[in-house]
Design a protein around this nucleic acid. Structure first.
Length: 756
DNA sequence: GCAAGGTC
């Protein structure tokens, strides 16, 4: 029996599709990654009896990135990112193992594939990601029989899904290619500007309070809208004005308030004059009576931006939340696809049928019945962009169930995280100094960097690829060329933005507090606590980066024997790990086998008393290449910590001295440790206070060792497994190896519409 | 360490 593999965009959709097509008669099992399930049933396909397997991916399978060596910020000139730096497709989420799942497990030996990815450009792109993985391992078809099919649907309803299955088409290569072009453009442009800005300003100012000064074709215009609004509010100057109001009443006591035809005057004396004139009036004369009727236009059909706007103004719901709910309603079959720019129903759209679905609703049953009886008027004419029908209720819900794209909330979240804006009460966005300076800077240098127009122009070009009216390479090259020139102009004109920065931020040399001495000039260097924390020597004009997410203290005024820089002690917290580091060596590794970002606990100096060579005890039991290094600052609760992962091992408590000797254990090769215990609390037999031995093998010490993990905010490794013995000691070992809100034309117009 | 786009 032949096999048909059907792939949806997300697990919940795969299940819904299987349920509908098999009429509820299917078996499910977990897939390789535990996230994507596989639903199986038998049925007919192209007139033959086949086995159907319905599964899904989790969004994009692949992502675009530069090849490894171009991700080094120190060695790569950002300008190279526009053309020289090669890119490659990497697995978007390696933990999900999607390629293996598709290629080696579910796709192998299948006969047909039906693509049920969302029907938008991104979905079309994912189609080809799936095809690329599966096509090579499919059974070879006889003759010219087609093996790959595309289902087109707009709602997860019985009719839509069954119709799609009966009218399978082909995936659209051009639409997929337009997404490839977008990806490459966003990557090259975003990374080049981000790296340049970040490195330029971080080296100059000490209190930027953002560790990353990012730039993106969507997030930057979003910030632009916030700052523009803020500037308008700031430049508004309130002026006092006067209004005349008269309250009149007739003989029966009915009263009304009359408004002044002039509305307001800004001249107090004029207002006073009119007030004096009315003061002595006892009669009023009605000159005319007019009647007005107000007609409210009937609404247009709902698209995404309008839905988000209404959700915000009427329901007080943030865009992220609103989109999440819409997404859920869609996958459960209550509404049609919630991502659409279209505000016009097709001529043949069954409006009455849609309304009939609501006839038993406990909320509006009566209204629906009345509408059906008297007949309905079509919504006001809108625009059919050709993507999906307007957002439409597909079935009635009972208490409990209740951007042109979902990315607007993501852009807003982005600029919050970068500390460009803060969210005030009532979900109002207020730009920070940094956000304001950036936007004003772009305006000064090149307005197009922050205006939505350039993105709109790019999207227009990309849609030419999608429509098959232009080829991928020339469109990409043309767009990259424009941004490359903009980039060079920006670099050359950065002083313009810098002038604005100077007003809001302090030069790095004036920031921070003196902490440790520089090994070159022997003057105090300043410790800058603001992220990213670093050390700066104003005399030598050098900046040294430091490990993040912890505290930095002076380490007993001890010096590095190699460069005479005073050591500092990094600590992740009172119970976590700590190690000394030399600010110079941390940035400029002294030995060949060392890399940037290593502290003394990874230093291979053969004789320095703070080095791995002298304080290392044994190989870490949890990670591949780490060594447990004695922490001489940890007393009285002595401990050793892995110099690679976050394993911390507590050992002796009541000791006043612990020393790592140069001898090793015969059994496990761990370093022998000499310990002096307190007289009163010594765990040793008799009155003994001193003992030497292997921490793991010595019968006295063995019971005093306890394995515990450091409580780190961002664990690099998860715990697991017990302690393994006999893996040899690790001492000295090298580690191996914005507009009219009704007619948004494109994404940027949609974004602008949200800010109205 | 970076973009934007999917989704968990």
């Amino acid at each position: 029996m032949k096999t048909v593999l059907m792939v949806a965009e997300k697990p919940s959709l795969a299940q819904s599709i299987a349920k509908i097509l098999s009429r509820g008669n299917f078996n499910s099992r977990k897939g390789l990654n535990g996230v994507c399930s596989v639903h199986e049933y038998t049925g007919t396909f192209l007139g033959q009896n086949v086995r159907f397997k319905v599964t899904s991916v989790c969004g994009h399978v692949m992502t675009l990135d530069f090849i490894g060596k171009y991700n080094n910020w120190d060695k790569v000139d950002p300008a190279e990112l526009f053309s020289k730096a090669p890119t490659e497709k990497k697995e978007a989420n390696p933990k999900l193992n999607m390629v293996k799942f598709l290629q080696q497990v579910e796709g192998r030996g299948i006969d047909y594939i039906v693509l049920w990815l969302d029907c938008d450009k991104e979905g079309e792109n994912i189609c080809f990601e799936v095809i690329d993985a599966i096509h090579p391992v499919m059974n070879i078809a006889r003759g010219n029989e087609r093996m790959i099919y595309r289902a087109k649907f707009s709602a997860i309803t019985d009719t839509d899904i069954n119709n799609a299955m009966n009218q399978l088409g082909e995936p659209n290569r051009n639409e997929a290619l337009s997404v490839d072009a977008r990806q490459e453009l966003d990557l090259r442009v975003g990374c080049a500007f981000t790296r340049f800005q970040t490195k330029y300003f971080q080296g100059k100012y000490g209190n930027l309070d953002s560790s990353l000064i990012s730039f993106g074709p969507c997030q930057t215009p979003t910030l632009g809208f916030c700052v523009e609004r803020h500037d308008k509010i700031q430049s508004f100057k309130p002026e006092a004005y006067w209004v005349l109001q008269a309250k009149i009443s007739n003989y029966s006591g009915d009263s009304m308030v009359l408004d002044w035809d002039r509305v307001r005057v800004f001249d107090r004396e004029v207002a006073q004059m009119y007030l004096n004139m009315t003061k002595f009036t006892t009669e009023t004369k009605v000159e005319s009576v007019s009647k007005k009727e107000k007609v409210k236009q009937r609404p247009q059909a709902l698209n995404t931006v309008e839905m988000l706007r209404v959700a915000s103004s009427a329901l007080g719901m943030g865009p992220q939340h609103a989109m999440q709910i819409a997404e859920k309603l869609y996958t459960q079959g209550y509404i049609s696809y919630p991502r659409t720019e279209t505000t016009q129903y097709p001529e043949n759209f069954d409006l009455k049928g849609t309304l009939r679905q609501q006839v038993n609703s406990p909320y509006w049953s009566e209204t629906v019945k009345a509408l059906l009886a008297e007949g309905i008027t079509r919504p006001r004419k809108g625009q059919d962009v050709g993507d999906h029908p307007p957002i439409t209720p597909m079935r009635s819900a009972t208490e409990a169930e209740l951007g042109t794209d979902a990315s607007i909330p993501v852009h807003i979240n982005n600029i919050c995280q970068r500390n460009y804006v803060t969210v005030e009460s009532g979900r109002r966005l207020k730009p920070t100094n940094l956000g304001i300076v950036l936007v004003h800077g772009y305006y000064k240098i090149d307005q197009e960097l922050v205006l939505p127009t350039i993105r709109s122009a790019v999207e227009k070009q990309l849609s030419l690829i999608a429509a098959g009216k232009a080829d991928f390479p020339p469109v990409l090259e043309h767009a990259l060329n424009i941004f490359k020139r903009k980039f060079h102009y920006f670099v050359d004109s950065i002083a313009g933005m810098d002038e604005l920065m100077e007003v809001s931020f302090s030069p790095i040399a004036e920031t921070g507090k003196p902490l440790s001495r520089c090994g070159r000039c022997h003057r105090f260097m300043k410790y800058i606590q603001a992220k990213p924390s670093r050390m700066h020597c104003s005399h030598c004009d050098d900046t040294y980066s430091l490990p993040q997410n912890g505290t930095i203290k002076l380490y007993k005024e001890l010096r590095c024997p190699l460069d005479e820089f005073e050591l500092v002690l990094w600590s992740s917290g009172s119970r976590g790990k700590s190690y000394p580091l030399c600010p110079y060596c941390y940035n400029h590794p002294p030995f060949r086998d060392m890399r940037k970002g290593m502290g003394c606990n990874e230093c291979t100096h053969p004789t320095c008393q703070h080095s791995l060579s002298l304080l290392g005890i044994v190989q870490c039991m949890e990670c591949e290449s780490g060594v447990l290094v004695f922490d001489p600052t940890s007393g009285p609760k002595w401990r050793m910590a892995c110099n690679k992962c976050n394993v911390v091992v507590h050992f002796f408590e009541n000791a006043h001295r612990v020393k790592v000797s140069s001898e090793t254990c015969d059994v496990c090769e761990a370093a022998i440790v000499d310990v002096d215990f307190n007289k009163a609390k010594s765990p040793l037999p008799g009155e003994a206070t001193q003992h030497s031995g292997c921490v793991f093998c010595d019968p006295v010490f063995q019971n005093l060792v306890e394995l515990q993990y450091a409580k780190m905010k961002h664990p690099m490794h998860r715990g697991g497994g017990g302690r393994r013995r006999g893996r040899g000691r690790g001492r000295g070992r090298r580690p191996p190896g914005r507009n009219n809100p009704k007619k948004p034309k494109d994404k940027m117009a949609a974004l602008a519409a949200y800010f109205v």
